[in-house]
Structure formats: C-alpha cells, structure tokens
C-alpha cells in the first residue's frame, strides 16, 4: 500500500512538473516563431493605454491614462496624460523626459542613464516582439494559447530581486501585445492595458517630440 502511494505520488509529481514542461517546449517554439513573424510586419504601433498600479507606497490603487507610440527601429513615446502629464520620448540612443507637475524637462542618453537604458531596451523588445532578446533574459512559459498569454520569469538575479514575473497577453490575431501585468516580489502589481492598438498607421510628425 505504501509502495503504491509512493509510486502514485511519483507519477503525480512527474505529470505535474515534467509533463507541462515538455508540452510547453513543444508548443512554445512554433508559437514564438509565429509571434515573431507577425511582429516583423510592424513598422509603427500606437495605442492609448490604461495603467493600474497597486503599490504599497500608494494609499490606494492609482489609475492613469497614457499613449504609447513605437516606430521602427528605435523610436518610442511613453506618455502619461493623467493624473499628471509626464513621460519620455526616445530617438535612438537619445531622448527627453518631462514632468509637467514638477515642471521638469531634461534630455538623457541611454548610454549615460542605465535605468532609462534598461527601460528603453525593455519597451523596444516588447514593441518589436524581440523574442530572441526576451528569451535570453526571461524563462518563458505559455499559460494559455488562445488568447496567447505568456509568463516571463527573469533569469537575471538583480531583476529577479524585485520582479516575480511578467504576464503578457497577445491580441486574438497574435499581432501585438494587448496587456502587460508585472507582479513584483513584494506583491505590488502594475497592469497596462492597450485599448486601441493601431498598427502601421501614419504617425504625426510630433510623435517623438516633447509636448508643448
């Protein structure tokens, strides 16, 4: 009886732990290839977004609205419109950030500012769906295939100190990301939902300029 229970436990352990890994590995590769292929068609991407922050540092949930714009190869705009107008634009290695509440505006270079360098690298990787870079940096697990939801676990110890995992949800046609959730080790969470994604539409000339 004891032997049978032990064997059952072992089998259960195998199915719970090993089998999903095999299944994931089998299904993830073609899926990632498909996502990569779809992203390669993206020249520009723009979308309003809603950001929800559940952070211990804030007294309550903090909602904000903003706009995200990307243009190949390395142009970005991340702008919050509420509760305070702030954000940054990136043009290659150089960029500018602003905060209308504190009336601050400054230039930066990703080579000089390691934090902005890291953020720019992350956002560009997501916008391009640069899966090679992401796979090097995260262990990727497929949560659901329809819609595609991935969990990304940081491989880097430093990043793993504060990020538990990232949850990425793709659109139904798998052409772009529609939601990103970041779960921190402390339990804090941030969710960004892209509401009206436009792919390869013409961008205004001021797309990568600081708002006046």
């Amino acid at each position: 009886m004891l032997y049978k229970t032990g064997l059952s436990s072992l089998l259960l352990f195998f199915f719970l732990c090993v089998a999903p890994v095999c299944a994931d590995n089998l299904s993830l590769e073609p899926l990632l290839t498909e996502l990569k292929h779809a992203a390669a068609q993206t020249e520009t991407l723009s979308s309003p977004f809603v950001q929800e922050k559940y952070l211990d540092i804030f007294a309550e949930k903090l909602l904000s609205d903003g706009v995200f714009i990307y243009q190949k190869p390395d142009f970005l705009r991340w702008e919050l419109l509420t509760p305070m107008a702030s954000g940054f634009v990136l043009r290659g290695d150089d960029g500018e950030r602003w905060n209308h509440l504190s009336q601050e505006q400054e230039s930066f270079s990703v080579t000089d500012d390691p934090v902005m360098g890291m953020i720019a690298q992350q956002l560009l990787a997501w916008a391009r769906v640069d899966l090679d870079w992401l796979e090097g940096r995260y262990r990727i697990e497929l949560q659901t295939a329809d819609p595609v939801v991935l969990h990304l676990y940081p491989r880097d110890e430093g990043e793993a100190e504060f990020i538990k995992y990232l949850q990425i949800q793709f659109s139904a046609d798998r052409s772009h990301v529609v939601a990103v959730q970041m779960v921190e080790q402390s339990g804090d969470q941030t969710t960004i939902t892209f509401t009206e994604v436009k792919i390869n539409s013409a961008l205004p000339s001021s797309a990568f300029q600081v708002p006046k």
């Binding site: 922050k53 952070l55 540092i57 904000s64 509760p83 702030s86 954000g87 953020i119 504060f162």
Partner: peptide, 20 residues
C-alpha cells in the same frame, strides 16, 4: 517638487526599479 517628481517616476516604467 520632490514628491511630485517621485510620483512621476513611479508612474513611469522605470518606477518599478526606482520604487525602493
């Protein structure tokens, strides 16, 4: 001014790194 700047930072993507 400092706390406004802190809030702006926290709302930006870099907030996760800078929170602590």
């Amino acid at each position: 001014r400092s706390l406004a700047a802190d809030l702006a930072q926290l709302l930006q993507p870099q907030g996760v790194v800078l929170k602590t």
